[in-house]
Design a protein around this nucleic acid. Sequence first.
DNA 1: CTAGTTTTTTACCGGTCGGTACATAAAGAC
DNA 2: GTCTTTATGTACCGACCGGTAAAAAACTAG
Lengths: 222, 222
Amino acid sequence: MKSRKRAPLSRPAGRPRSFDSAKALDRALQIFWRKGYAGASLSDLTTAMRINRPSLYAAFGDKETLFLRVLDHYAQGPGSHALHALDEPTSRAVVEKLLRGGADLLTAPGNPRGCLLVHGALTCGNNADSMRRELISRRTASELALRSRFTRARKEGDLPKDANPANLARYIVTIIHGMSVQAAGGATRVELRCVADIALQNWPTSRVLHKKQLGTPAITGD
Amino acid sequence: MKSRKRAPLSRPAGRPRSFDSAKALDRALQIFWRKGYAGASLSDLTTAMRINRPSLYAAFGDKETLFLRVLDHYAQGPGSHALHALDEPTSRAVVEKLLRGGADLLTAPGNPRGCLLVHGALTCGNNADSMRRELISRRTASELALRSRFTRARKEGDLPKDANPANLARYIVTIIHGMSVQAAGGATRVELRCVADIALQNWPTSRVLHKKQLGTPAITGD
DNA sequence: CTAGTTTTTTACCGGTCGGTACATAAAGAC
DNA sequence: GTCTTTATGTACCGACCGGTAAAAAACTAG
Protein backbone atom coordinates (compact mmCIF):
# COMPACT_ATOMS: atom_id res chain seq x y z
CA MET A 1 0.00 0.00 0.00
CA LYS A 2 0.95 3.60 -0.43
CA SER A 3 1.90 5.94 2.34
CA ARG A 4 -1.12 7.76 3.60
CA LYS A 5 -1.04 11.49 3.13
CA ARG A 6 -1.84 13.53 6.17
CA ALA A 7 -4.94 15.54 5.56
CA PRO A 8 -3.91 19.17 5.96
CA LEU A 9 -7.46 20.40 6.30
CA SER A 10 -10.71 18.90 7.45
CA ARG A 11 -11.33 15.66 5.72
CA PRO A 12 -14.92 14.87 4.79
CA ALA A 13 -15.30 12.05 7.34
CA GLY A 14 -15.83 8.45 6.50
CA ARG A 15 -13.38 6.02 5.02
CA PRO A 16 -11.03 7.85 2.66
CA ARG A 17 -10.93 6.92 -0.99
CA SER A 18 -8.02 4.66 -1.79
CA PHE A 19 -7.59 5.65 -5.45
CA ASP A 20 -6.91 8.76 -7.49
CA SER A 21 -10.07 9.36 -9.47
CA ALA A 22 -8.20 11.34 -12.14
CA LYS A 23 -5.85 8.44 -12.82
CA ALA A 24 -8.77 6.05 -12.79
CA LEU A 25 -10.46 8.20 -15.41
CA ASP A 26 -7.31 8.13 -17.50
CA ARG A 27 -7.25 4.37 -17.40
CA ALA A 28 -10.94 4.16 -18.24
CA LEU A 29 -10.25 6.39 -21.21
CA GLN A 30 -7.62 3.99 -22.48
CA ILE A 31 -10.05 1.09 -22.30
CA PHE A 32 -12.97 2.89 -23.94
CA TRP A 33 -10.62 4.26 -26.58
CA ARG A 34 -9.29 0.84 -27.41
CA LYS A 35 -12.49 -1.19 -27.18
CA GLY A 36 -15.33 1.27 -27.71
CA TYR A 37 -18.29 1.80 -25.45
CA ALA A 38 -20.01 -1.54 -25.85
CA GLY A 39 -16.75 -3.41 -26.24
CA ALA A 40 -15.43 -2.26 -22.90
CA SER A 41 -16.89 -4.50 -20.23
CA LEU A 42 -17.12 -3.53 -16.61
CA SER A 43 -14.52 -6.16 -15.85
CA ASP A 44 -12.18 -4.59 -18.39
CA LEU A 45 -12.76 -1.20 -16.82
CA THR A 46 -12.42 -2.18 -13.18
CA THR A 47 -9.30 -4.21 -13.91
CA ALA A 48 -7.62 -1.33 -15.72
CA MET A 49 -8.78 1.23 -13.20
CA ARG A 50 -7.67 -1.00 -10.31
CA ILE A 51 -11.01 -0.46 -8.67
CA ASN A 52 -13.77 -2.73 -7.49
CA ARG A 53 -17.06 -2.60 -9.24
CA PRO A 54 -19.09 -0.95 -6.46
CA SER A 55 -16.37 1.67 -6.08
CA LEU A 56 -16.76 2.53 -9.74
CA TYR A 57 -20.48 2.93 -9.34
CA ALA A 58 -20.11 5.03 -6.21
CA ALA A 59 -17.53 7.32 -7.78
CA PHE A 60 -18.71 7.65 -11.39
CA GLY A 61 -22.25 6.36 -11.59
CA ASP A 62 -23.14 3.71 -14.14
CA LYS A 63 -21.29 2.85 -17.34
CA GLU A 64 -22.97 5.54 -19.40
CA THR A 65 -22.14 8.30 -16.95
CA LEU A 66 -18.56 7.12 -16.75
CA PHE A 67 -18.32 7.18 -20.52
CA LEU A 68 -19.63 10.75 -20.66
CA ARG A 69 -16.99 11.83 -18.16
CA VAL A 70 -14.38 10.02 -20.21
CA LEU A 71 -15.53 11.89 -23.30
CA ASP A 72 -14.97 15.21 -21.56
CA HIS A 73 -11.61 13.98 -20.35
CA TYR A 74 -10.73 13.09 -23.93
CA ALA A 75 -11.83 16.43 -25.33
CA GLN A 76 -9.70 18.33 -22.85
CA GLY A 77 -6.74 15.98 -23.17
CA PRO A 78 -5.81 14.11 -26.34
CA GLY A 79 -8.48 15.82 -28.43
CA SER A 80 -7.66 19.32 -27.33
CA HIS A 81 -5.76 20.17 -30.50
CA ALA A 82 -9.11 20.44 -32.28
CA LEU A 83 -10.17 23.25 -29.99
CA HIS A 84 -6.92 25.15 -30.31
CA ALA A 85 -6.91 24.75 -34.06
CA LEU A 86 -9.86 27.12 -34.34
CA ASP A 87 -7.73 29.90 -32.85
CA GLU A 88 -5.29 29.88 -35.74
CA PRO A 89 -5.28 33.15 -37.67
CA THR A 90 -6.17 31.81 -41.13
CA SER A 91 -8.50 29.12 -42.35
CA ARG A 92 -5.59 27.36 -43.96
CA ALA A 93 -3.70 27.30 -40.68
CA VAL A 94 -6.83 25.97 -38.97
CA VAL A 95 -7.11 23.14 -41.46
CA GLU A 96 -3.40 22.47 -41.34
CA LYS A 97 -3.44 22.16 -37.58
CA LEU A 98 -6.56 20.03 -37.65
CA LEU A 99 -5.26 17.59 -40.23
CA ARG A 100 -1.68 17.35 -39.06
CA GLY A 101 -2.63 17.32 -35.40
CA GLY A 102 -5.23 14.70 -36.23
CA ALA A 103 -2.72 12.53 -38.05
CA ASP A 104 -0.42 12.75 -35.05
CA LEU A 105 -3.14 12.04 -32.50
CA LEU A 106 -4.56 9.11 -34.42
CA THR A 107 -1.16 7.45 -34.57
CA ALA A 108 0.28 8.54 -31.22
CA PRO A 109 2.60 5.80 -29.99
CA GLY A 110 1.14 5.34 -26.52
CA ASN A 111 -2.51 5.60 -27.50
CA PRO A 112 -5.01 3.37 -29.25
CA ARG A 113 -5.24 3.93 -32.98
CA GLY A 114 -8.12 6.03 -34.17
CA CYS A 115 -10.49 8.56 -32.66
CA LEU A 116 -12.59 7.82 -29.62
CA LEU A 117 -15.50 9.80 -31.01
CA VAL A 118 -15.49 7.82 -34.24
CA HIS A 119 -14.86 4.32 -32.96
CA GLY A 120 -16.53 4.65 -29.58
CA ALA A 121 -19.93 3.50 -30.76
CA LEU A 122 -20.48 2.94 -34.42
CA THR A 123 -22.67 -0.07 -34.82
CA CYS A 124 -21.93 -2.22 -31.83
CA GLY A 125 -24.51 -3.30 -29.38
CA ASN A 126 -28.24 -3.00 -29.16
CA ASN A 127 -28.18 -0.98 -25.95
CA ALA A 128 -25.57 1.53 -27.06
CA ASP A 129 -27.96 3.66 -29.08
CA SER A 130 -27.99 6.58 -26.67
CA MET A 131 -24.20 6.65 -26.54
CA ARG A 132 -24.03 6.47 -30.31
CA ARG A 133 -26.28 9.49 -30.51
CA GLU A 134 -24.12 11.26 -27.95
CA LEU A 135 -21.01 10.69 -30.06
CA ILE A 136 -22.78 11.77 -33.23
CA SER A 137 -23.90 14.91 -31.45
CA ARG A 138 -20.36 15.74 -30.37
CA ARG A 139 -18.98 15.14 -33.83
CA THR A 140 -21.68 17.35 -35.31
CA ALA A 141 -20.84 20.07 -32.82
CA SER A 142 -17.23 20.01 -33.96
CA GLU A 143 -18.30 20.27 -37.57
CA LEU A 144 -20.52 23.24 -36.79
CA ALA A 145 -17.73 24.98 -34.91
CA LEU A 146 -15.48 24.53 -37.92
CA ARG A 147 -18.18 25.78 -40.23
CA SER A 148 -18.65 28.99 -38.27
CA ARG A 149 -14.89 29.43 -38.21
CA PHE A 150 -14.90 29.25 -42.02
CA THR A 151 -17.80 31.67 -42.17
CA ARG A 152 -15.71 34.09 -40.16
CA ALA A 153 -12.77 33.48 -42.47
CA ARG A 154 -14.87 34.33 -45.50
CA LYS A 155 -16.08 37.49 -43.83
CA GLU A 156 -12.48 38.44 -43.11
CA GLY A 157 -11.47 37.88 -46.73
CA ASP A 158 -9.45 34.85 -45.75
CA LEU A 159 -11.68 32.63 -47.89
CA PRO A 160 -13.09 33.56 -51.30
CA LYS A 161 -16.57 35.00 -51.35
CA ASP A 162 -17.98 32.07 -53.26
CA ALA A 163 -16.65 29.53 -50.77
CA ASN A 164 -19.23 27.41 -49.00
CA PRO A 165 -18.29 27.09 -45.32
CA ALA A 166 -20.71 24.25 -44.64
CA ASN A 167 -19.39 22.08 -47.45
CA LEU A 168 -15.78 22.87 -46.69
CA ALA A 169 -16.24 22.02 -43.01
CA ARG A 170 -17.96 18.77 -43.92
CA TYR A 171 -15.17 17.97 -46.34
CA ILE A 172 -12.51 18.46 -43.69
CA VAL A 173 -14.24 16.46 -40.97
CA THR A 174 -14.94 13.73 -43.51
CA ILE A 175 -11.23 13.46 -44.16
CA ILE A 176 -10.48 13.41 -40.45
CA HIS A 177 -13.03 10.66 -39.83
CA GLY A 178 -11.60 8.74 -42.75
CA MET A 179 -8.11 9.12 -41.34
CA SER A 180 -9.42 7.68 -38.09
CA VAL A 181 -10.65 4.59 -39.92
CA GLN A 182 -7.34 4.35 -41.74
CA ALA A 183 -5.45 4.61 -38.47
CA ALA A 184 -7.57 1.88 -36.91
CA GLY A 185 -6.72 -0.22 -39.93
CA GLY A 186 -3.01 0.15 -39.36
CA ALA A 187 -2.09 3.22 -41.39
CA THR A 188 1.14 4.84 -40.25
CA ARG A 189 1.71 8.42 -39.27
CA VAL A 190 3.51 9.32 -42.48
CA GLU A 191 0.75 7.79 -44.55
CA LEU A 192 -1.85 9.89 -42.78
CA ARG A 193 0.32 12.96 -43.17
CA CYS A 194 0.41 12.35 -46.91
CA VAL A 195 -3.37 12.30 -46.97
CA ALA A 196 -3.43 15.52 -45.00
CA ASP A 197 -0.97 17.09 -47.41
CA ILE A 198 -3.11 16.22 -50.41
CA ALA A 199 -6.12 17.79 -48.80
CA LEU A 200 -4.09 20.87 -47.90
CA GLN A 201 -2.52 21.22 -51.31
CA ASN A 202 -5.54 22.88 -52.82
CA TRP A 203 -7.12 24.68 -49.96
CA PRO A 204 -8.87 27.74 -51.39
CA THR A 205 -7.18 31.10 -50.99
CA SER A 206 -8.74 34.39 -51.92
CA ARG A 207 -5.66 36.62 -52.17
CA VAL A 208 -2.54 34.67 -52.99
CA LEU A 209 -2.42 32.39 -56.00
CA HIS A 210 -0.38 29.25 -56.02
CA LYS A 211 1.84 29.46 -59.05
CA LYS A 212 1.83 25.71 -59.25
CA GLN A 213 -1.80 25.76 -60.26
CA LEU A 214 -0.98 27.51 -63.50
CA GLY A 215 0.60 24.67 -65.34
CA THR A 216 0.68 21.75 -63.01
CA PRO A 217 -2.06 19.29 -62.14
CA ALA A 218 -3.81 20.09 -58.94
CA ILE A 219 -2.68 17.25 -56.74
CA THR A 220 -0.08 14.64 -57.33
CA GLY A 221 -0.07 12.72 -54.10
CA ASP A 222 3.49 13.72 -53.26
CA MET B 1 -46.54 -22.78 -46.12
CA LYS B 2 -45.37 -22.19 -49.62
CA SER B 3 -46.14 -24.41 -52.54
CA ARG B 4 -43.52 -27.06 -52.89
CA LYS B 5 -41.55 -26.94 -56.08
CA ARG B 6 -41.33 -30.18 -57.91
CA ALA B 7 -37.77 -31.30 -58.12
CA PRO B 8 -36.95 -31.57 -61.82
CA LEU B 9 -33.93 -33.75 -61.22
CA SER B 10 -32.75 -36.02 -58.47
CA ARG B 11 -33.08 -34.34 -55.13
CA PRO B 12 -30.34 -35.03 -52.61
CA ALA B 13 -32.55 -37.13 -50.32
CA GLY B 14 -33.47 -36.24 -46.80
CA ARG B 15 -35.91 -33.65 -45.64
CA PRO B 16 -35.85 -30.70 -48.04
CA ARG B 17 -34.82 -27.28 -46.80
CA SER B 18 -37.80 -25.10 -46.01
CA PHE B 19 -36.15 -21.73 -46.68
CA ASP B 20 -34.36 -20.00 -49.52
CA SER B 21 -30.77 -19.65 -48.39
CA ALA B 22 -30.14 -16.71 -50.72
CA LYS B 23 -32.99 -14.75 -49.17
CA ALA B 24 -31.80 -15.74 -45.72
CA LEU B 25 -28.36 -14.43 -46.59
CA ASP B 26 -29.89 -11.17 -47.77
CA ARG B 27 -31.67 -10.77 -44.47
CA ALA B 28 -28.54 -11.61 -42.52
CA LEU B 29 -26.74 -8.94 -44.52
CA GLN B 30 -29.31 -6.36 -43.46
CA ILE B 31 -28.80 -7.22 -39.79
CA PHE B 32 -24.99 -7.26 -39.91
CA TRP B 33 -25.01 -4.07 -41.92
CA ARG B 34 -27.22 -2.31 -39.42
CA LYS B 35 -25.73 -3.66 -36.20
CA GLY B 36 -22.21 -4.73 -37.03
CA TYR B 37 -20.66 -8.11 -36.37
CA ALA B 38 -20.64 -8.07 -32.60
CA GLY B 39 -23.83 -6.07 -32.38
CA ALA B 40 -25.84 -8.61 -34.32
CA SER B 41 -26.90 -11.34 -31.93
CA LEU B 42 -27.89 -14.79 -33.06
CA SER B 43 -31.43 -14.01 -31.97
CA ASP B 44 -31.43 -10.92 -34.19
CA LEU B 45 -30.16 -12.99 -37.08
CA THR B 46 -32.47 -15.97 -36.74
CA THR B 47 -35.48 -13.70 -36.28
CA ALA B 48 -34.67 -11.71 -39.40
CA MET B 49 -33.76 -14.79 -41.42
CA ARG B 50 -36.91 -16.58 -40.24
CA ILE B 51 -34.80 -19.58 -39.37
CA ASN B 52 -34.20 -21.55 -36.22
CA ARG B 53 -30.82 -21.49 -34.65
CA PRO B 54 -29.78 -25.07 -35.50
CA SER B 55 -30.86 -24.50 -39.10
CA LEU B 56 -28.56 -21.52 -39.28
CA TYR B 57 -25.64 -23.54 -37.98
CA ALA B 58 -26.37 -26.42 -40.34
CA ALA B 59 -26.65 -24.16 -43.37
CA PHE B 60 -24.00 -21.52 -42.76
CA GLY B 61 -21.71 -22.72 -39.99
CA ASP B 62 -21.09 -20.52 -36.99
CA LYS B 63 -21.50 -16.77 -36.73
CA GLU B 64 -18.05 -16.01 -38.14
CA THR B 65 -18.55 -18.17 -41.21
CA LEU B 66 -21.96 -16.64 -41.82
CA PHE B 67 -20.42 -13.19 -41.61
CA LEU B 68 -17.75 -14.09 -44.15
CA ARG B 69 -20.43 -15.30 -46.56
CA VAL B 70 -22.36 -12.11 -45.94
CA LEU B 71 -19.25 -10.10 -46.78
CA ASP B 72 -18.97 -11.83 -50.15
CA HIS B 73 -22.67 -11.28 -50.69
CA TYR B 74 -22.16 -7.60 -49.95
CA ALA B 75 -19.20 -7.26 -52.27
CA GLN B 76 -21.11 -8.77 -55.17
CA GLY B 77 -24.32 -6.89 -54.40
CA PRO B 78 -24.46 -3.43 -52.84
CA GLY B 79 -20.70 -2.96 -52.95
CA SER B 80 -20.26 -4.05 -56.53
CA HIS B 81 -19.97 -0.50 -57.84
CA ALA B 82 -16.46 -0.42 -56.38
CA LEU B 83 -15.41 -3.29 -58.63
CA HIS B 84 -16.96 -1.83 -61.75
CA ALA B 85 -15.47 1.56 -61.03
CA LEU B 86 -12.00 0.20 -61.77
CA ASP B 87 -13.09 -0.55 -65.32
CA GLU B 88 -13.71 3.09 -66.16
CA PRO B 89 -11.40 4.37 -68.89
CA THR B 90 -9.76 7.24 -67.00
CA SER B 91 -8.59 7.65 -63.45
CA ARG B 92 -10.91 10.59 -63.05
CA ALA B 93 -13.87 8.50 -64.14
CA VAL B 94 -12.79 5.79 -61.70
CA VAL B 95 -12.70 8.26 -58.83
CA GLU B 96 -15.93 9.86 -59.92
CA LYS B 97 -17.73 6.55 -59.97
CA LEU B 98 -16.19 5.52 -56.66
CA LEU B 99 -17.13 8.69 -54.85
CA ARG B 100 -20.54 9.28 -56.36
CA GLY B 101 -21.46 5.61 -56.23
CA GLY B 102 -20.22 5.54 -52.66
CA ALA B 103 -22.32 8.55 -51.70
CA ASP B 104 -25.36 6.86 -53.21
CA LEU B 105 -24.72 3.49 -51.61
CA LEU B 106 -24.03 4.96 -48.18
CA THR B 107 -27.34 6.80 -48.22
CA ALA B 108 -29.48 4.33 -50.14
CA PRO B 109 -33.06 4.60 -48.88
CA GLY B 110 -33.69 0.95 -48.16
CA ASN B 111 -30.30 0.16 -46.66
CA PRO B 112 -28.55 0.89 -43.38
CA ARG B 113 -26.45 4.02 -43.42
CA GLY B 114 -22.74 3.55 -43.86
CA CYS B 115 -20.46 0.86 -45.20
CA LEU B 116 -20.52 -2.69 -43.88
CA LEU B 117 -16.76 -2.98 -44.19
CA VAL B 118 -16.20 0.15 -42.14
CA HIS B 119 -18.81 -0.27 -39.43
CA GLY B 120 -18.91 -4.04 -39.29
CA ALA B 121 -16.26 -4.36 -36.63
CA LEU B 122 -14.45 -1.28 -35.53
CA THR B 123 -13.94 -1.47 -31.83
CA CYS B 124 -16.82 -3.51 -30.54
CA GLY B 125 -16.39 -6.68 -28.65
CA ASN B 126 -13.44 -8.55 -27.24
CA ASN B 127 -14.00 -11.62 -29.37
CA ALA B 128 -14.41 -9.83 -32.69
CA ASP B 129 -10.70 -9.37 -33.27
CA SER B 130 -10.45 -11.90 -36.06
CA MET B 131 -13.41 -10.36 -37.89
CA ARG B 132 -11.93 -6.92 -37.43
CA ARG B 133 -8.74 -8.12 -39.07
CA GLU B 134 -10.80 -9.67 -41.86
CA LEU B 135 -12.50 -6.36 -42.58
CA ILE B 136 -9.23 -4.48 -42.43
CA SER B 137 -7.77 -6.96 -44.88
CA ARG B 138 -10.62 -6.46 -47.32
CA ARG B 139 -10.42 -2.70 -47.07
CA THR B 140 -6.69 -2.86 -47.68
CA ALA B 141 -7.25 -5.06 -50.71
CA SER B 142 -9.58 -2.43 -52.17
CA GLU B 143 -7.01 0.25 -51.59
CA LEU B 144 -4.33 -1.80 -53.30
CA ALA B 145 -6.57 -2.46 -56.28
CA LEU B 146 -7.18 1.25 -56.62
CA ARG B 147 -3.49 1.96 -56.30
CA SER B 148 -2.57 -0.39 -59.11
CA ARG B 149 -5.34 1.15 -61.21
CA PHE B 150 -3.71 4.53 -60.70
CA THR B 151 -0.31 3.09 -61.54
CA ARG B 152 -1.76 1.90 -64.81
CA ALA B 153 -3.30 5.32 -65.38
CA ARG B 154 0.07 6.98 -64.89
CA LYS B 155 1.66 4.56 -67.30
CA GLU B 156 -1.03 5.36 -69.84
CA GLY B 157 -0.46 9.08 -69.47
CA ASP B 158 -3.80 9.48 -67.79
CA LEU B 159 -2.10 10.70 -64.63
CA PRO B 160 0.94 13.00 -64.54
CA LYS B 161 4.31 11.33 -64.24
CA ASP B 162 4.96 12.82 -60.81
CA ALA B 163 1.69 11.51 -59.38
CA ASN B 164 1.98 9.10 -56.50
CA PRO B 165 -0.55 6.26 -56.96
CA ALA B 166 -0.22 4.97 -53.40
CA ASN B 167 -0.93 8.33 -51.82
CA LEU B 168 -3.74 9.12 -54.23
CA ALA B 169 -5.40 5.77 -53.58
CA ARG B 170 -5.08 6.24 -49.84
CA TYR B 171 -6.53 9.72 -50.16
CA ILE B 172 -9.57 8.47 -52.03
CA VAL B 173 -10.33 5.56 -49.73
CA THR B 174 -9.86 7.86 -46.76
CA ILE B 175 -12.57 10.11 -48.12
CA ILE B 176 -14.84 7.13 -48.75
CA HIS B 177 -14.34 5.83 -45.23
CA GLY B 178 -14.99 9.30 -43.89
CA MET B 179 -18.17 9.53 -45.94
CA SER B 180 -19.25 6.25 -44.37
CA VAL B 181 -18.83 7.73 -40.90
CA GLN B 182 -20.70 10.84 -42.01
CA ALA B 183 -23.53 8.73 -43.39
CA ALA B 184 -23.79 6.76 -40.17
CA GLY B 185 -24.00 10.10 -38.38
CA GLY B 186 -26.97 11.18 -40.43
CA ALA B 187 -25.43 12.99 -43.39
CA THR B 188 -27.74 13.18 -46.39
CA ARG B 189 -27.03 12.10 -49.91
CA VAL B 190 -26.61 15.63 -51.23
CA GLU B 191 -24.20 16.45 -48.42
CA LEU B 192 -22.05 13.47 -49.29
CA ARG B 193 -22.21 14.37 -52.96
CA CYS B 194 -20.86 17.80 -52.10
CA VAL B 195 -17.92 16.19 -50.36
CA ALA B 196 -17.34 13.99 -53.37
CA ASP B 197 -17.47 17.01 -55.67
CA ILE B 198 -14.86 18.86 -53.64
CA ALA B 199 -12.55 15.89 -53.85
CA LEU B 200 -13.18 15.59 -57.57
CA GLN B 201 -12.74 19.25 -58.26
CA ASN B 202 -8.98 19.06 -58.28
CA TRP B 203 -8.23 15.60 -59.42
CA PRO B 204 -4.88 15.71 -61.24
CA THR B 205 -4.89 15.64 -65.01
CA SER B 206 -1.85 15.35 -67.17
CA ARG B 207 -3.18 16.62 -70.51
CA VAL B 208 -6.14 18.91 -70.13
CA LEU B 209 -5.91 21.97 -67.94
CA HIS B 210 -8.89 23.31 -66.09
CA LYS B 211 -9.15 26.96 -67.01
CA LYS B 212 -10.74 27.64 -63.68
CA GLN B 213 -7.45 26.95 -61.98
CA LEU B 214 -5.84 29.94 -63.60
CA GLY B 215 -7.52 32.62 -61.60
CA THR B 216 -9.84 30.92 -59.20
CA PRO B 217 -9.12 29.35 -55.86
CA ALA B 218 -8.78 25.62 -56.01
CA ILE B 219 -11.90 24.51 -54.19
CA THR B 220 -14.79 26.52 -52.95
CA GLY B 221 -17.09 23.92 -51.54
CA ASP B 222 -19.75 24.60 -54.13
C1' DC C 1 -14.12 3.98 24.09
C1' DT C 2 -18.81 4.34 21.02
C1' DA C 3 -21.54 6.20 17.26
C1' DG C 4 -21.90 7.69 12.63
C1' DT C 5 -20.23 7.92 7.83
C1' DT C 6 -18.15 6.45 3.73
C1' DT C 7 -15.45 3.12 1.12
C1' DT C 8 -14.02 -1.44 0.23
C1' DT C 9 -14.76 -6.39 -0.45
C1' DT C 10 -17.21 -10.50 -1.58
C1' DA C 11 -20.76 -12.63 -3.35
C1' DC C 12 -24.61 -12.60 -5.93
C1' DC C 13 -28.80 -11.26 -9.19
C1' DG C 14 -31.54 -11.74 -13.67
C1' DG C 15 -30.61 -11.41 -18.48
C1' DT C 16 -28.32 -12.32 -22.70
C1' DC C 17 -24.61 -14.21 -25.30
C1' DG C 18 -22.90 -18.02 -28.86
C1' DG C 19 -23.46 -22.73 -29.42
C1' DT C 20 -25.54 -27.51 -29.04
C1' DA C 21 -28.07 -32.19 -27.57
C1' DC C 22 -32.04 -34.44 -28.60
C1' DA C 23 -36.21 -35.84 -30.25
C1' DT C 24 -39.30 -35.28 -34.20
C1' DA C 25 -40.73 -34.38 -39.09
C1' DA C 26 -40.29 -34.92 -44.03
C1' DA C 27 -38.25 -36.53 -47.84
C1' DG C 28 -35.90 -40.67 -51.03
C1' DA C 29 -34.51 -45.70 -51.41
C1' DC C 30 -36.11 -50.21 -51.23
C1' DG D 1 -44.73 -50.53 -45.28
C1' DT D 2 -39.30 -49.97 -43.18
C1' DC D 3 -34.68 -47.85 -43.34
C1' DT D 4 -31.75 -43.97 -44.05
C1' DT D 5 -30.85 -39.19 -44.42
C1' DT D 6 -31.41 -34.45 -43.71
C1' DA D 7 -33.93 -30.46 -41.61
C1' DT D 8 -36.70 -28.68 -38.00
C1' DG D 9 -38.32 -27.28 -33.23
C1' DT D 10 -37.49 -27.19 -28.29
C1' DA D 11 -35.03 -26.86 -24.64
C1' DC D 12 -30.87 -26.35 -22.72
C1' DC D 13 -25.61 -25.36 -21.60
C1' DG D 14 -21.71 -22.57 -19.50
C1' DA D 15 -19.90 -17.96 -19.89
C1' DC D 16 -20.31 -13.37 -19.60
C1' DC D 17 -22.98 -9.03 -19.30
C1' DG D 18 -24.30 -4.65 -16.30
C1' DG D 19 -25.67 -3.76 -11.81
C1' DT D 20 -26.36 -4.41 -6.62
C1' DA D 21 -27.09 -6.24 -1.56
C1' DA D 22 -24.75 -6.86 2.53
C1' DA D 23 -21.04 -7.05 5.58
C1' DA D 24 -16.47 -5.68 6.88
C1' DA D 25 -12.99 -1.90 7.10
C1' DA D 26 -11.24 2.80 7.80
C1' DC D 27 -11.89 7.08 8.93
C1' DT D 28 -14.02 11.53 12.02
C1' DA D 29 -16.73 13.30 15.90
C1' DG D 30 -17.96 13.19 20.46
